[in-house]
């Protein structure tokens, strides 16, 4: 069971309290009704599913109930860092080589 740091509660809590909510930084267009088929496909269906570093959303559902973002390595399962919803993708990851 992983330990996940909730950026709102500011502490590590067991995985049982959280739920994954899919890839992060997938922006819903302010003019979604006018989006092209291609753009909507990218927004709704296409996901990166990388081997390695993934940016994803989690919810501290059995805690503060907040959604937040996390950087996780899909190979090691390790959380690199977490940050609040709405914050930009971190430019630099802790421990990353350059």
């Amino acid at each position: 069971m992983l330990l996940i740091r909730c950026p709102y509660c500011e502490e590590e809590r067991p995985e049982l309290e959280f739920r994954n909510a899919g890839e992060a930084h997938v922006v819903r267009s302010a003019n979604i009704a006018g989006e092209s088929d291609d753009d909507f496909e990218k927004f709704f269906f296409i996901r990166a599913n990388p081997k390695g570093v993934i940016y994803e959303r989690w919810r501290h559902i059995h805690g503060c109930a907040r959604f937040f973002n996390a950087v996780r390595d899909t190979v090691t399962d390790k959380f690199v860092m977490t940050y609040k919803a709405g914050e930009p993708k971190p430019a630099k990851l802790p421990g990353a080589a350059k």
Binding site: A21, R28, R57, R59, I61, A65, R66, F67, A85, G86
Partner: peptide, 13 residues
């Protein structure tokens, strides 16, 4: 409830 919270917190904050 989760669906509503998701949109409220992340798309329509």
């Amino acid at each position: 409830m989760n669906h509503m919270e998701d949109y409220l917190q992340t798309e329509f904050p």
